[in-house]
Simulated scan of single mutants.
Amino acid sequence: MAAILGTDQPDIVYLTLKEEHVSKAGKLLADSFVHDEVLAQVVDIPYDERLEYDQENCRMSVDDGTSLVAIDNATAEIVGVLAGQILQGQDYSQFDQEDLECSVPNTALILQAESLFFTSPDFRKNPECKILNVFKLGVHKDYRRLGIAKKLVEMHEDIARQKGCSWILATPSGQASQNLYSKSGYLEIGEIFYRDFVFNVACVRRSRRRMPDTESSNILMDK
């Protein structure tokens, strides 16, 4: 799968994420989280741990061919990533409180947000459906506002249709990604405010300051 933007844009090629992309794709996602996410500003997550987590998510998503990378043809560097994986609804519908006993704080937040979907009436009507679950979306800071994230989301929707998925499940935790999914027609079915979320003590390394009392939140969206 590949597509190239017009000549008035950088020469960007979009490809299905492969094993050879995992290392750099995971690094881009980790860097995006550390520099852009409100959650990263509140809770100290060791960078090596964040990197390992994102690279493992990319590695997990290789087999079913549902993740994408954007590559600058001029430099051969990965400048955008959308990582995801197909879930079988019946296998993931049980929200386990023990899953909150994690070492990566935002994982606990996302799991709690996803539980809102799996307990929703829409899901319960068809609990055996396929779901394309979005792990993470990131674009290199020097390539933003070029439509790369939008293109990745659109191509992800094509993949969902081709794979027979009933839903796309996204939990965007940054304001920019929340806005993107909203403008792309995704419906908000749940919201968890950072200020209201209580992390298990095992999940928190050091807290620089309290969770922000702002509108920033983790929103659960589906399409």
Rank of each mutant, 00 (worst) to 15 (best):
M1K: 11
G6H: 06
T7Q: 14
E19M: 10
H21C: 02
V22H: 05
V22E: 08
S23L: 14
K24H: 13
L29N: 10
V38H: 08
L39G: 11
A40K: 00
V43H: 05
V43I: 14
P46R: 02
D48T: 09
L51P: 00
E56R: 08
E56S: 04
R59K: 10
D63A: 12
D64R: 00
G65R: 09
S67A: 03
L68W: 06
V69L: 01
A74F: 12
A74W: 11
A74T: 13
V79F: 02
V79T: 05
L82Y: 07
A83Y: 02
G84T: 02
I86K: 08
S93M: 15
E101W: 13
L111N: 14
Q112V: 11
L116Y: 04
F117L: 01
S120P: 05
S120R: 06
D122Q: 14
N126G: 09
P127N: 02
E128L: 07
K130S: 07
G138R: 01
V139M: 00
L146A: 01
I148D: 01
I148G: 03
I148V: 10
A149T: 00
L152W: 03
L152E: 05
M155W: 12
I159K: 11
K163W: 08
G164Q: 10
S166G: 15
L169S: 06
S182F: 14
Y186I: 07
E188K: 15
E188S: 14
E191M: 08
I192T: 04
F193C: 12
N200A: 10
M211P: 08
E215S: 09
I219W: 00
L220V: 10
M221L: 12
M221Y: 07
